[in-house]
Computed example of a mutant assay.
Amino acid sequence: MGIQKDPLGTACLDYISGIKNSEIIVQSNITEDDVLPVEYLFRPFNQMPDIEKKALTISKGKILDVGAGAGSHALYLQQINKDVTANEISENACRVMQQRGIKNIIHNDFFQLPTDTKFDTILMLMNGIGIAGDIDGLKIFFDKCKELLSPKGSVIIDSSDLRYLFEDDDGSMLINLNDNYYGEVAYKMKYKNTEGESFKWLFIDDESLKFHAKQNGFAIEKIADGPHYDYLAKLTLL
């Protein structure tokens, strides 16, 4: 990802340089444009959603924080003396994490990570499983997790069931069953004059995740439900 096409990383770098109250515009193919306050990416533990707090609490051993962003999760884990490595594809975001004092940072695409180091916890918050892109990408995702996990390790993820976007007043689903899975979304981010490329992102309901996890050699345990169709789950190797 070129720096000129890295709105999230550029926004984080501006924020830590003193430019506050900025926003990232998030465009998608299923809803109107949304706004992500850059400040939210720097939230401390006490301002995180309960699901994220729970995920950090149960993370153990050697931890890989995938898609670490500005590093808020990794920083908290480091502060409570847990062994955490932050993985982030954005070069600017990695610079931000360095400035915040995060010790172990890997600037790389998750799917290109070397497999010589094994992790007891792969942590993927803020719908981190979205990097699978779509349902077809789940096999590649699970295969990579297998390469990186220690034998008794676990993948801790949160995601959301987007059915609420397609429900009628009577609870029926207004979707085309012959179309792609309704949780497959195309996103684009923009920060000031920095516009990123479009990318695919997956939101998956817990039952579909359970099915695909089992197909790929993982058991799933739902840890918690969030307030709005979201949930936290732990995946372990069968």
Score class of each variant (00 low, 15 high):
Ala219Gly: 12
Ser90Tyr: 11
Gln98Ser: 14
Ile175Cys: 10
Tyr231His: 06
His73Ala: 11
Lys210Ile: 10
Arg100Pro: 02
Glu207Gln: 15
Leu165Cys: 04
Leu75Asp: 00
Asn21Trp: 01
Thr10Gly: 03
Pro151Ser: 13
Gly217Gln: 08
Asp134Glu: 15
Tyr187Gln: 03
Asp83Leu: 06
Tyr181Gln: 02
Gln98Asp: 12
Ala233Trp: 03
Glu91Leu: 13
Met189Asp: 11
Ser150Val: 01
Asn216Glu: 13
Ile89Thr: 06
Lys54Trp: 00
Ile25Phe: 03
Trp201Cys: 09
Tyr182Ser: 13
Lys5Asn: 14
Ile58Met: 12
Ile63Met: 01
Ile58His: 10
Arg100Gln: 14
Glu221Met: 09
Glu147Thr: 05
Leu148Asn: 05
Leu149Ala: 06
Glu88Val: 06
Val26Trp: 09
Gly196Ser: 09
Tyr15Gln: 04
Val35Gln: 03
Ile30Trp: 10
Gln47Met: 12
Leu8Asn: 06
Asp161Met: 05
Leu162Ala: 10
His228Trp: 04
Thr10Cys: 10
Glu197Ser: 14
Gln99Met: 15
Asn216Gly: 03
Leu113Arg: 06
Lys82Thr: 02
Glu32Ser: 12
Gln99Leu: 15
Ala86Arg: 01
Tyr76Phe: 04
Thr117Lys: 13
Gln79Asn: 15
Lys192Phe: 08
Val96His: 02
Lys152Asp: 15
Lys54Ser: 11
Leu125Asn: 11
Lys118Phe: 02
Leu238Gly: 14
Gly183Cys: 06
Phe218Tyr: 15
Glu197Arg: 07
Asn92Thr: 01
Thr85Val: 13
Lys60Phe: 13
Ile102Asp: 05
Ile129Gln: 04
Lys146Val: 04
Lys82Asn: 07
Val38Tyr: 04
